[in-house]
């Protein structure tokens, strides 16, 4: 099945974000779910260290603990919603998206390293495309717009070197 019109799906996404602002008093996010999962995992292995670490410690100190974090539950919803939408549209398919220039193995390795680099960037920036670009973008936060512009600038700077992986 064909993907929806980008403007219509964008408006729908904007209404979801607006609903989050109105009903939850906060916006969307994604990298925070990874941060709280990492904090909970470290705490399971080395509880005293995790609590003393200023990054993990913050997630551990939240009411309900790291596994009840709002963004983690929201991301569980994203997985359910993404799965259901793909199933309804006949787009559930096991496979690896890649260009003709790379093998499946190298695409997976590139994807993993890209994810790791993004994770480090998202920690420094206090969020990602969801929590900063979309949420802070709509609230006109200066830092969020700075994040969005610098992220796309870096993406465009790096992309030509990676063309073989995609085209």
């Amino acid at each position: 099945m064909k993907y929806s019109d980008p403007y219509l799906s964008g408006v729908a996404l904007g209404l979801v974000l607006l609903a989050a602002f109105a009903f939850a008093g906060r916006g969307l996010g994604a990298s925070g779910a990874f941060a709280t999962t990492a904090s909970g995992s470290v705490a399971a292995i080395a509880p005293a260290y995790a609590e003393s670490n200023p990054y993990f410690g913050r997630y551990l100190a939240r009411p309900g603990g790291p596994w009840r974090e709002w963004l983690l539950i929201e991301i569980a919803g994203v997985v359910i919603g993404g799965f259901a939408s793909a199933a309804l549209a006949g787009r559930l398919r096991r496979g690896v998206e890649r260009g003709r220039g790379v093998s499946i193995g190298s695409r997976l390795a590139i994807a993993f390293s890209g994810g790791a680099v993004m994770g480090i960037g998202a920690v420094l920036a206090r969020g990602c495309t969801s929590g900063q670009a979309l949420t802070g973008g709509a609230l006109l936060s200066v830092g969020s717009w700075g994040f969005m512009l610098s992220a796309f600038a870096a993406g465009y700077a790096v992309a030509p070197a990676l063309k073989r992986a995609w085209r």
Binding site: V79, F83, R93, M118, A122, V123, S130, G146, A153, G155
Partner: peptide, 26 residues
């Protein structure tokens, strides 16, 4: 952080939210 994130974004081809959707659809 945005500069680091953007370089990772071009490598990964997905951002944190969309990677969860991609994984969920197989």
């Amino acid at each position: 952080g945005g500069l680091v994130f953007g370089a990772g974004f071009a490598l990964a081809g997905l951002c944190p939210g969309t990677s969860c959707v991609a994984a969920a659809s197989g």
